[in-house]
Design a protein around this nucleic acid. Structure first.
Lengths: 228, 228
DNA sequence: CGCCGTCCTTAACAAAGGTTAAGGACGCAA
DNA sequence: TTGCGTCCTTAACCTTTGTTAAGGACGGCG
């Protein structure tokens, strides 16, 4: 796969609204988000983890509609559009797989709308953490329910549509309830079952095939004991 | 195009979460929406107008993730999946056109998130009305900035993530400011420029090619006078 | 080593919107 | 015609969240 590697710092813009890029972006390390901005404010509409290709669907687009922004330091591989066009033409199987990826993204977006629309700030943040945890576990980056979090509290606020001050209050409350620890750019989910319950997290929408990522650490140990 | 016609009443569910439909749904008359529901509440994540195919992207999906619901009485045409599969295989041009449609839907979803996340209730409702107006004008269903609105105030609330009571307050305020009239299942935008300004409506995200739908009625009359 | 900028934290206050409740309009069906 | 159900409307009250402001921690850079 032909690719060019790129490094970016936190809050760098990898691709900007109005641009007409000639390659897609495969996220290797760190987090990316789609950011929508105007006078009314700024809003993160999705967060991407290593392994994702956030702008794959934009391949046929005349131009980008929104900004692709780094959350924390990031390493990406740029893959020329031509590569995917040929892939699409040559293999119906892969073409279908890419459609399924796109569909999963849409499902996430609708769920994100649901999250903003129906939950209060505490459950909203909890839900975002649940989603991040599961998606990171799928790619092996949160094996013990602990993962890197270069996000600022303002980033969290922009994702959950709350003010930065209230984001702080909310995190404090999650800490107070012993649900998560969040220190020195690391998040540790201390009580997975509790977090899931608070967020009413139902991971169907992620379209996972292997549901073992949803088990808590206790369950895992229990299973280990069973098989021993 | 092989199709079966179906009629539905308001709040009927055309396709349900978990189902595995074998045809796509072309909306002929009325409005459809994608509804996300759980114990935390219910949330409309997009609204579709005649000419749309809301579940086109779900073609490769193993099963539906959300509910497709009628807002007001509705007429749809069900087109077998096989038809689109052949279309995709036979014509790269049409295949690309369908990708672009899907991309426009994603853009709308991100904008919907932005709407919920950054605007207060009044601007949020105003923005939804702006989007509806433009999309209906594109298909010739709001020529004089007037269009059918079988929506209940609870529907509006579910779309804008506000309570039904506050939806009522908000509509009253739009009326008081002489921006819209909303009587007997008909909405008339009385002050298009004012509504656009209140909502900070920037229609780029809809990906329109013909921007004339964005002109207000006054501009239209002015242009008519010029050419006369 | 010290400065500066970014980020986190806290408090007091203000505003937006949710909840509950109750009455009224309207249309449909018996 | 009457009755019932859905929808709209309004009011009072309360909760959540936003805003502003100020201080403190921390890290990078000169």
């Amino acid at each position: 796969m032909p690719a060019t590697i790129g490094h970016f710092a936190s809050h760098d813009t990898i691709a900007r609204r109005g641009e007409r890029p000639t390659s897609c972006c495969l996220l290797l390390q760190g987090y990316l988000c789609w950011m929508v901005e105007s006078e009314s404010g700024q809003q993160i509409t999705s967060i991407h983890v290593p392994g994702d290709m956030p702008d794959l669907q934009n391949l046929p687009a005349p131009q980008l509609q929104y900004d692709l922004v780094a959350l924390g330091p990031v390493v990406v591989a740029f893959v020329p559009h031509a590569f995917f066009r040929e892939l699409n033409a040559s293999s119906p199987r892969l073409s279908r797989a890419l459609s399924l990826l796109a569909l999963a993204d849409v499902s996430c977006l609708r769920n994100w709308i649901f999250n903003l629309g129906t939950r209060d700030a505490l459950a909203r943040v909890a839900h975002l953490l649940c989603e991040l945890t599961v998606r990171l576990r799928v790619v092996g980056l949160a094996k013990d329910f602990t993962f890197a979090s270069p996000f600022t509290q303002s980033d969290l606020a922009a994702a959950c549509a709350i003010s930065a001050v209230h984001a702080n209050r909310t995190i404090q409350e999650l800490r107070r309830r012993s649900l998560v620890q969040w220190h020195s750019k690391t998040i540790a989910v201390a009580d997975w079952a509790g977090l899931v319950q608070l967020a009413r997290f139902r991971p169907d929408y992620l379209g996972l095939r292997d549901p073992s990522m949803l088990d808590g650490p206790q369950t895992g140990q229990f299973a280990a004991q069973l098989s021993a």
